[in-house]
Amino acid sequence: MSLWEYANPKKFMDTTGPLVPWVAGAAAVAMATGLIWGFFLTPDDFRQGSTVRIVFIHVPAAMMAINIWVMMLVTSLVWLIRRHHVSALAAKAAAPIGLAMTVIALITGGLWGQPMWGTWWVWDPRLTSFLVLCLFYIGYIALWQAIEDPDTAADLTAVLCLVGSVFALMSRYAVFFWSQGLHQGASLSVQAGERMAADYRYPLYLCMVAFGLLFVALVLVGTRTEIRARRMKALEARARMTQGLT
C-alpha cells in the first residue's frame, strides 16, 4: 500500500476516524502523567531550584514549535509538487497548534529567564529567531484567512512556509551557530551524551511524547475538519448552481 493513498480525502477520513480517540486518549494520559511526575515528583535542582520544573513544559513546547513548522514545510512541498489537497489542509490545521506551542515556549522561557538570567527577554539569537518564527505562524494563519480561493491560499502559504523554514531551522541551530547568546545549548543531545540527570530526563521524555501525541491528535481532528469544511463549500456551490439552473 502506498502512502499517497492517504492523499485521497475519503481514504484519509476512513483511516483517521478510528485513530483519533486512541491518540487523544494516549496524549491525555501521557500529558497528565508527565506533568504530574515533573511537577510533584522531581527534586529541586541545586542551581535552578524549583524553576527546573518549567523545563517539562518549555522544552517539549519549543521542540514541537519547530517540528510543527518542519511538518508544515514537508506537507507544503507535497502540495506544491503533487497537488494533494489533504497535505495543504494538514499544514493549515497544524499552524494554530504550532502558534500555541511557540507562545507557550516564549512565555515559559521568559518566566524561567527572569529568576535565572535576571531578565525576561534578551535579543539572543535563539530567542529572536523564535520570536520571528512566532510572527511567521501568525502571518501564515492570517494569509489563509485573507485569501478566498483555497488553492491560491495553499500556494501562497506554502511559499511563506518555505521562507519561514529558515527561521525554524535557525531557532533549532542558533545555539550552535552563535556562541554569544544567553540561551544554553541543547539539554538533550545524542552527540554530547546525556547532560541531564535521570530524575529530570525521564519525565521530560514522557512530556515530549505527550506533546507529540497531543499534536498528532489535534492535527488529525483539524485536518478532518478542514476536509469537511471544503466538502461543505463544494455542496453549497453545487446547490447554488442547481438553483441557478432551475
Binding site: L35, I57, I104, I107, L111, W112, Q114
Partner: peptide
C-alpha cells in the same frame, strides 16, 4: 514563576 508557567 513555576506556577505561572504551568497555569498559563
Amino acid at each position: 514563576e513555576v506556577l505561572a508557567s504551568y497555569i498559563v
